[in-house]
């Protein structure tokens, strides 16, 4: 645990302080603090059951943390996420997320998925649908929403599939669609829960490209849970390692890779081998089971 805390000069986009989440007697997250800045990809890694998804669920309002402060700051405004309801976090604090098991709207088309994500904007434009019912000045806004959707579909090369039901896309395309759908709410912080799970190497490379594009072009902060070390090590700017609900390491990829505490967490006491290969072996054995899935 020698790596220094990455302290950004200004107020970080997200600052998690003393986050603790208890389920009855079980302490899923124990006093975790870390920060994520915009224009950076922050990865949260850790063995199965380390509490990574629970952190996400606390951040996006699906759980109310037992203790802790989750502050999101952008444009000089501060949002205390632990006090907000789930949909308000997405609506006003602009935190978007994806899910470990893809949650698209399967029967709706690809385009509709992206339009639904612009719900709040369109609701205002259509006078909460009352004005829209009689067709005043709503079509222009809807056309704009379609253009935004088209822009995102171009980024993931799915323009041709826009009118197909989302359930008919391939698995990799569904993953990418879920990410751009989250982008349609114009988030400041994007939380991705294992976006590379189940992807083949080529799809993983595409994903890396997309995530770097989001960071570089859209200047958002990305928070990433991932087991695939190819993704984590290649694109993250900053890594937080959790084990048994505690933070055991925090820093730049190179530092984390060589942190003895991390190696111990992944390998037990044996410290002979290099981390990434072993992590891969470790992961090959286990499925995607990772803490409690989102429950409403």
């Amino acid at each position: 645990m020698t790596s220094p805390m990455t302290q950004p000069m200004t107020q970080p986009l997200l600052s998690v302080e003393h986050l603790t989440m208890r389920f009855g007697g079980l302490v899923a997250i124990d006093d975790v603090s870390f920060a994520a800045t915009d224009k950076e990809i922050t990865a949260i890694i850790g063995p199965n059951g380390a509490g990574k998804t629970t952190v996400f669920n606390c951040l996006t309002g699906f759980y109310k943390p037992s203790v802790g402060r989750l502050a999101l700051t952008w444009d000089g405004r501060e949002f205390l996420l632990e006090q907000m309801e789930g949909f308000v976090i997405a609506k006003t604090a602009k935190v978007a997320r994806t899910f470990q098991n893809i949650r698209l709207f399967p029967k709706m088309t690809v385009l509709e998925n992206l339009i639904v994500a612009q719900h709040n904007k369109l609701m205002r434009a259509s006078g909460y649908s009352v004005r829209g019912l009689f067709g005043f000045g709503y079509q222009g806004k809807e056309a704009e929403a379609v253009e935004i959707a088209r822009y995102w579909l171009e980024q993931i090369n799915l323009v041709d599939r826009a009118d197909d039901a989302a359930e008919n896309l391939s698995y990799g395309d569904q993953r990418q669609l879920e990410i751009v759908r989250a982008m349609c709410i114009e988030p400041k912080l994007l939380c991705l829960d294992e976006p590379a799970a189940g992807l083949n190497p080529r799809e993983t490379a595409d994903l890396n490209k997309l995530l770097l594009f989001l960071r570089n072009e859209h200047k958002i902060g990305v928070l990433l849970i991932e087991h695939d070390m190819n993704v984590v090590m290649q694109i993250s700017d900053h890594i937080v390692v959790l084990d048994y609900g505690r933070k055991i390491s925090d820093g730049e990829p190179e530092a984390v890779r060589n942190d003895p505490a991390v190696i111990r967490a992944y390998l037990g006491e044996d410290e002979d081998e290099e981390l990434p290969d072993i992590v891969k072996q470790d992961l090959a054995g286990d499925g995607a089971d990772d803490g409690p899935e989102t429950q409403a």
């Binding site: 996006t60 699906f62 789930g86 949909f87 308000v88 997405a90 609506k91 978007a96 997320r97 899910f99 949650r103 698209l104 709207f105 399967p106 029967k107 709706m108 509709e112 339009i115 639904v116 994500a117 719900h119 709040n120 369109l122 609701m123 259509s126 909460y128 649908s129 829209g132 019912l133 709503y138 759908r181 989250a182 349609c184 709410i185 989102t294 409403a296």
Partner: peptide, 27 residues
């Protein structure tokens, strides 16, 4: 008519997946 308005689409989205709808800011 309402099916093609935001409220109608939100209804369908809720029918398809409530958790995802919530994560997109739909009340």
């Amino acid at each position: 008519r309402i099916r093609k308005l935001p409220v109608g689409r939100a209804w369908e989205a809720l029918r398809e997946d409530e958790i995802a709808s919530r994560s997109l800011g739909i009340n």
